[in-house]
Nucleic acid binder design. Structure first.
Length: 506
RNA sequence: GCGCUUGUAGCUCAGCUGGUAGAGCACUCCCCUUUUAAGGGAUAGGUCGCGCGUUCGAAUCGCGCCAAGCGUACCA
């Protein structure tokens, strides 16, 4: 009943084309053919045949019989030639009535571009050099009711590509390549960590307190408990609870975070993050780890640690350059903020070079703003920016040589933050002080200041071993490694605003 | 959030300064049949994102709304 309405809706969109295919569907059923059968036994895939018969000469026929299946992407000469695409590649189907018989040949008229079919036949290479399967029989495996985008120009409309990713995937090999690479990259990361004794864990995505980062969370409500709940903005505090418990000396979680913020070419409301923690390590070890991890991913997925991104070669070969944050700022602005320790003084220096700060900004925040505006754009090649101000690093351990700083680094590539790591703050007294500082900032209007998590402090009071921690933005990493200019290209189903309805405001 | 740009046939696009739409491919039918964006012929297909306004007349001009892209803001 509901589906009948939907059908009517769809028919309005592409009425004629769909109606024609519905007619064919009916004709098939009349012939006793099920257009949606249950199973087809394949004996080969396209690329396998292309490789195996790469040396077969033009015009040569073999007796070798195979069954393949896939989607018809093109039909030529009224069905005599069809391009069959499966997930591995393409192979041409040669369909001649002499070899498949009168009746099946007639039925071929009911087959369209877009249909999924199974073919059995023998391998030959046509005189024109195209490897083909000479069909002796075929079976419709799924009748397609909607037309595919035009074969030559394909589908370029970005909105349709994101909203109807299934069509994009059928038609655009780039999209398939990128999303397959994404999967391989993640798989390599897992393997790398497993080999080093890491334990993969899962922590709550639905939380009563959204901590571990500074960001606006998505809010929801648990009906049975009648309490507000939040989608996590980071798994950090739960992972460190597991470290306190000694579940394993090395743990990681590779999964989704949610932040209720703007959407642009580098931000999607839900995004994938790797976070890992290693006991008895510090941030120096984390720098080595991420360099080795990414180098391995590059080598195993792309075959090189030198990667082209939008015309620039990025060299991920370890070791990466390391610069202190204050040193980087001094290098690109000439200002040494170690000599301007007062926030008012620091803000004055920032203003001299055109960086606007706000009234309540502390020393660290001022430096951070200067860094973002004046330094970040220069950081194209992989680099670790180390020793962030304490004011802006509430979860990082104070620097062993300078109490105003922390042992924290961010890895930057192409100007983007791709990782954030610390020698984790393990001192519960210090941690409470940091949280209280954040609470004050929140009271002063900083919506993204970190909330106080009492239970987390309790956990720290039981004792957390010295510990290095690392977070890696997987989507951005995948962008860099797949030459994708926007995050939406590396996420199969990026967040889109629904079409056609005005926002129903209650 | 703000600014700029875009939205026309299933797809890719044209339609200049207002005269109520056009191409290629796809679809349907016919011819041809070892093709590679096959070829030849014929037909059909459109609430021009949505709404309001200006006008004798709006795809075209104005305003509002919806969606998208880019930039900007936000995002330690």
């Amino acid at each position: 009943m509901e589906s009948a309405e939907q059908t009517t809706q769809t028919q309005q969109d592409s009425q004629r084309l769909r109606t024609a295919r519905i007619q064919k569907l009916t004709d098939l059923v009349d012939k006793g053919i099920n257009p949606y059968p249950y199973k087809f036994v394949r004996t080969a895939v396209a690329q396998e045949l292309q490789d195996k018969y790469a040396e077969l000469e033009s015009g040569i026929e073999t007796e070798d019989t195979y069954s393949v299946a896939g989607r018809i992407m093109a039909i030529r000469n009224s069905g005599m030639f069809m391009d069959l695409m499966d997930t591995t590649g393409k192979i041409q189907i040669f369909c001649h009535k002499e070899f498949i018989g009168e009746e099946p040949f007639k039925t071929l008229k009911l087959v369209d571009v877009g249909d999924i079919i199974g073919i059995t036949g023998t391998i030959r290479r046509t005189p024109r050099g195209e490897l083909s399967l000479k069909a002796t029989s075929y079976q419709i495996l799924s009748k397609s009711l909607l037309p595919l985008p035009e074969k030559f120009h394909g589908l370029t409309d970005v909105e349709t590509r994101y909203r109807q990713r299934y069509v994009d995937l059928i038609v655009n090999s780039d999209t398939r390549d990128t999303l397959r690479k994404r999967s391989l990259i993640i798989q390599e990361i897992r393997t790398f960590l497993m080999e080093r004794g890491y334990l993969e864990v899962e922590t709550p995505m639905l939380q009563t307190l959204a901590g571990g980062a500074a960001a606006r969370p998505f809010e929801t409500h648990h009906n049975a408990l009648d309490i507000p709940m939040f989608m996590r903005i980071a798994p950090e505090l739960h992972l460190k609870r597991l470290m306190v418990g000694g579940l394993n000396d090395k743990v990681f979680e590779l999964n989704r975070n949610f932040r209720n913020e703007g959407i642009d070419t580098r931000h999607n409301p839900e995004f994938t993050m790797l976070e890992l923690y290693e006991a008895y390590s510090d941030y120096n070890d984390m720098m080595d780890l991420i360099e080795n991890m990414i180098a391995r991913v590059c080598n195993n997925v792309l075959g090189s640690t030198k990667v082209n991104f939008q015309g620039t070669e990025l060299d991920f070969t370890p070791p990466w350059e390391r610069m202190t944050m204050l040193g980087a700022v001094k290098k690109y602005t000439g200002i040494d903020f170690a000599e301007h320790l007062d926030e008012v003084d620091a803000a004055k220096k920032a203003k001299e070079i055109g960086v606007e700060t706000e009234q309540g900004d502390n020393w660290g925040k001022v430096i951070d703003k200067v860094f973002e505006e004046k330094v970040e754009p220069h950081l194209i090649q992989p680099v670790h920016i180390i020793d962030y101000p304490r004011d802006i690093s509430p979860l990082a351990k104070a620097h062993r040589d300078n109490p105003r700083l922390t042992e924290r680094f961010e890895s930057r590539v192409n100007g983007w933050e791709i990782s954030n790591a610390f020698s984790e703050l393990t001192d519960p007294i210090d941690q409470r002080g940091r949280f209280e500082g954040q609470a004050k900032a929140k009271a002063d209007g900083d919506e993204e200041a970190h909330p106080i998590d009492e239970d987390y402090i309790t956990a720290l009071e039981y004792g957390l071993a010295p510990c290095g921690g690392l977070g890696v933005g997987i989507d951005r990493l995948v962008m860099l490694l797949t030459d994708s200019p926007t995050i939406r290209d590396v996420i199969a189903f990026p967040t889109m605003k629904p079409k056609g309805h005005k926002a129903d405001k209650e």
